[in-house]
Design a protein around this nucleic acid. Sequence first.
DNA 1: TTGTAAGCGTTATCAC
DNA 2: GTGATAACGCTTACAA
Lengths: 341, 341
Amino acid sequence: MSRVPAQAPGGAPTIREVAEAARVSRATVSRAFSRPDLLRPETVAHVRAVATRLGYTPNIVARGLSTGRYATIALVVPDIANPFFPPLVRGAQRAADAAGYGVFLGDSDEDAEREDSLLARFTGQVEGIVLASSRLDAARVRRHAERRPVVLVNRDLEGIPRVLIDPTGGINAAVDHLADLGHRRIAYVSGPHPSWAHQQRRRALRRAVAARQGLELVTVAARRPTYDSGVACVPALLATGVSAAVGFDDVLAQGLLAGLAAAGIPVPTHFSVVGCDDGVAATTAPPLTTVSAQTGEAGRAAVELLLGVLGNADVRDARYVLDTHLVIRSSTGAVSASRGG
Amino acid sequence: MSRVPAQAPGGAPTIREVAEAARVSRATVSRAFSRPDLLRPETVAHVRAVATRLGYTPNIVARGLSTGRYATIALVVPDIANPFFPPLVRGAQRAADAAGYGVFLGDSDEDAEREDSLLARFTGQVEGIVLASSRLDAARVRRHAERRPVVLVNRDLEGIPRVLIDPTGGINAAVDHLADLGHRRIAYVSGPHPSWAHQQRRRALRRAVAARQGLELVTVAARRPTYDSGVACVPALLATGVSAAVGFDDVLAQGLLAGLAAAGIPVPTHFSVVGCDDGVAATTAPPLTTVSAQTGEAGRAAVELLLGVLGNADVRDARYVLDTHLVIRSSTGAVSASRGG
DNA sequence: TTGTAAGCGTTATCAC
DNA sequence: GTGATAACGCTTACAA
């Protein structure tokens, strides 16, 4: 067989060349890297020296083919351009890197079919998969989880390890905060209905409001969790007569801020807005009071959970819950006379 | 030898099992997928049917080991959390996916050493590399380019294919725009000195200002291209007595906006701000007038260039230049009486 | 402690 | 048109 050498340009040296140069067998070279404890120290030193001189690095792909350990995981997100994900991706990639793992990134573009085909493709070449805010139905997620270890982020499926961002703490604090400021009627500007995060946030809000005397919650449906959609929601929001709103996420809340400004309603003196995620909240105008989530930590935790599964740790049904807290900035204030709840 | 099977959970079928079930040789199964034109149509159909029944998919890693074609590229960025990169990553991943390639993502965390080690790791398992806004010195970039095909984004090294975002068009338009509004003295709030993008923007600004009568450019050094740094720059910016500023990027410009607001300077009536990139410009308050770059397109183009190189297209010294244009929003206005240039 | 050789799943060469 | 078989680069029983 004579094909294009795998390491085409530069022709990276193989284990065989190192073996010949060091006058040992290929097995010995292999062991000098993967099981040095089995070799005489001098042998290890000698082989390593020769390898370095030749610029040899073990070929991870070939090793993977032999051992089944590809040292690679996949991370699939619905939309890397959504500010929620970059910190998560960063945390995940960093944790993987620290463990010597490479990360395949997949962007499903919010599309279940696309996500499905990305996963099908990855299955053959990764050891495990982190699925963040999956758009797949439970059955399909489980199907993939049968073929490869899967860790979910913000999706709660029994039997599949998952890291969940629990909005309860932050939402409770937000409702307390708004109540303290004198708000009585509060709106939730909703997220995408099938989203786990949306379900959780809505439920947490309902409970928080129900637990406090004299508060009322109304829901305003946003078309999509985008800035533009937030802007567009403002008339409907104002029509409800509330004096404060909690947005599904920061981006939506930022749109609310812009729409309110356009409508001539000053924030926070005449209307209060709370965001979620703390992704862009620090840089809005005014800076958003928001339910802060540890997004990067979620990415990190998901990867560590996955590595745990791969290392046979019995975390089959792990459920790692990250809590949230309220960060008070400048988009919330005392209820005004004109719009008191 | 009896090790953990490569496709551990679920045990994906191999080419051998399909061959046996279909009563043909492994070679025939292989050809049914990679060179169906060499087989009788009925054979192809039969093999494919059996494969489907068994749930067989060719193992990309094994194929890669045999052919040297891993169907995988690497994309390395300095900081995925910087809003400039997510659209680029998205464009790149999409283009790669369309060509059947997987994307390894690396985040160098703005650190050259880290970037170096990421690249060392990727070299053995990818066909080529896209290096966006590399923090590596030219020598090191070239060293990597010797081992694997590399395409650069926003870095201009002769002999290495690159896609460049040329700020000239947008900057010229921005200077015209500001001049038309009556501004005479304009500040450039600078980016990181070693950055190619910064060098280009500064040079384009200098030229644009020099080409027009009665304009003057001053430079204000930002510590880093961040929101906070933009806020912190405002006193120095105001001390220069200019009436308008162009920020290195949108994030920095957004900080300027916030700092100006905090200083009680209304934008755009008393001060004008222009950003760069058009990453977050549409959602600032007020919405930023900005030099819009086709970030996603840059990612797409880089990948296609790389795939071209891999397909032996002779683009060794390709230099793909994307131009920019000015998007006028609400952060620029006529110079005020009090701060006229 | 080290070497031999089989095998990971695929493709390419060469027969038939 | 299809089948043997060696090879891709590496790891790992098993022997020595």
